[in-house]
Amino acid sequence: MLVSYSWNLGNPRIYYLYRSGDFFLLFDRRANLRTVCLLKLSPEKSMKHFVVAITSGQLLFFAQLAYATGFVFACANRAKTTPLSIITIGIMVIAVVCNGLALGLRYYHSWPMMPMYLGLPALLCCMGVIWLLGSSHRLLKSARTEGLLIQGVIVFLAIITLLFPKDFYLPFLRSATIWSHLFLITGIVAKGCLLMASIKALIFWLYHQKNKTGKKKTLSSAMPWALWGFVCLTVSMFTGEVWSYLGWGTPVVWHDPAITTIMAIWFYWIAYLHLHYTPGWHPPRRAIFMVIGGLLLITFACHPDMGPFRFPFR
């Protein structure tokens, strides 16, 4: 239940209240724009002692910590036991929820504009959701390596997001259009799908090197990810183009270096799709091509969104 509320609890800036049972969720503008408060009514109905204020930065930090813990648990789960798998899934669910909440808060405090440099935390969340979608399969069955690789990528992205944050820029007025939001969201989904395709290709290549069975199936399973990634990237690029025309009057904003990275990734994956019609490109070579595409993607997903080094426990 949403109650628009002007709260006066010694802090007049708290203004939104969500209620679910005894718990209240308050949005507050204290502490660098983004704060969420979780309150529980005490028997005396005195709320002051129960206020826990959490900023979106802290939520993201919890998520990063949970992603790392989940990775450690997944590594420890060598015997593929059910209790440890359930704990890992639980931790990853917490991580994705915290990550999603942090993104939601940042979006909430920028709407109708687009939050700046949301790419890395959002890609983190996207990869987390992808991991969760096939988590039981990845923890207990044959695809354990795949699960660990996805979690490895997630932890790498989490470390980059933690040490090189760039979320201190304010949104700009021209981003208050549906095209900018479509550009951002489809771009993130595309990157998530293409990274997943690269991970599947890497696994295929590793299995192929060891001459294990079932190799063909693994690479064919990468194709849907590559295709959906390409579709989303195309939609992202064209919505960006429409936004560029409406906002600046030109189809390409050449002075923004991030635009060229999207074009580079797009051309690379078109080249990959064309390889299917090229004789001589056998599955292992195509897998290597996809893995290089994944490395290119990680570089261009991280570098433009990386700020200066900041020690997280300052």
Binding site: P257, M263, L296
Partner: peptide, 29 residues
């Protein structure tokens, strides 16, 4: 395929060339 790979490589190089030098490219529009 060769042209597309070269385009991807060239645009990757472009990212590092434009980064911090947007003022050179802005007047093109």
């Amino acid at each position: 395929v060769v042209l597309l790979i070269l385009l991807a490589a060239d645009l990757s190089l472009a990212y590092f060339s434009i980064n911090g030098r947007g003022i050179i490219f802005e007047p093109m529009n």
